[in-house]
């Protein structure tokens, strides 16, 4: 376990050593800020729903950019050989890297809480959906981080890792919207597979164990896939 903690610390700090973190966070805040406030006054409602409804799409390309280097860079520079010959298990490595990515997502989303505070000056905010939204954001961020980590473990090229991760996240977000031509019964099944559907449930302030279970299963499946890929590489 100490191995995982050490790798977490190293990876988390690693984000802030290079300018990557600052660039990604800036892009994220500018994008969400613009999309949110440009329509906010048209709705005339003091809630953050339009912010959260955009989150799955924005996460779909921001998070793969955050996770793309986690394994690809190690494969590319060869540092993976040093890491893997130190007394840590594959599980430690994956846990450390995954939690570092989730922590980074949390740091990235945290400043948006100011939106809520600003809105509360204008009108009465129902804090329930906001809290649910943030909880959902972390779960969604974790699921997408796991996907990104998996994509990163597949290749030594960061750009390929990014595109693979982004495609997977996009499909998961838009699967129910892409399949609108299917009969309703089939559509419901695919809806359950979509990340957006579960995320919107939580961000409405309804915390349903099914939604939580969905995100946790995505994490599990992707991290398990990562560990299989890693084992195969050695």
């Amino acid at each position: 376990m100490t191995g995982a903690v050490n790798i977490f610390k190293k990876e988390f700090r690693g984000y802030f050593i290079t300018p990557v973190a600052y660039i990604v966070i800036s892009i994220f805040l500018v994008l969400t800020g613009w999309f949110f406030f440009s329509t906010f006054f048209l709705y005339g409602q003091a809630d953050m729903r339009s912010f959260f409804s955009l989150l799955p799409l924005i996460f779909s390309f921001i998070i793969p950019a955050v996770t793309m280097r986690l394994f690809s860079e190690e494969f590319n520079t060869g540092s993976y050989e040093l890491l893997f010959t130190m007394p840590v298990s594959g599980l430690d490595i994956i846990t450390g890297k995954f939690t570092a990515a989730v922590a980074f997502v949390a740091v990235m989303v945290a400043p948006t809480f100011f939106y809520g505070i600003v809105i509360s000056f204008i009108g009465d905010v129902d804090w329930g959906p906001v809290a649910g939204g943030y909880m959902g954001a972390i779960l969604l961020g974790a699921a997408f981080s796991a996907i990104g980590l998996f994509a990163s473990s597949l290749t030594r090229n960061q750009i390929i890792a990014f595109i693979t991760g982004m495609s997977l996240c996009f499909v998961l977000t838009l699967i129910d919207k892409m399949l609108f031509f299917l009969p309703e019964g089939a559509l419901n099944v695919f809806q359950y597979l979509g990340a957006d559907f579960h995320f919107q449930n939580i961000s409405r302030g309804i915390i349903d164990s099914r939604d939580i279970l969905y995100f946790l299963s995505v994490c599990f499946v992707m991290l398990y896939g990562t560990s299989l890929v890693i084992q195969e590489k050695t």
């Binding site: 100490t2 191995g3 903690v5 050490n6 790798i7 610390k9 190293k10 700090r13 690693g14 050593i17 290079t18 520079t77 060869g78 540092s79 993976y80 050989e81 040093l82 010959t85 130190m86 007394p87 840590v88």
Partner: peptide, 23 residues
């Protein structure tokens, strides 16, 4: 390993601390 593939972005001191932690 051959050609010592260390993490390029890290400071030497930070790197050795990281290794010390894992060890």
């Amino acid at each position: 390993p051959e050609s010592a593939p260390l993490y390029p972005d890290m400071l030497v001191y930070d790197y050795l601390r990281f290794v010390a932690g894992l060890r």
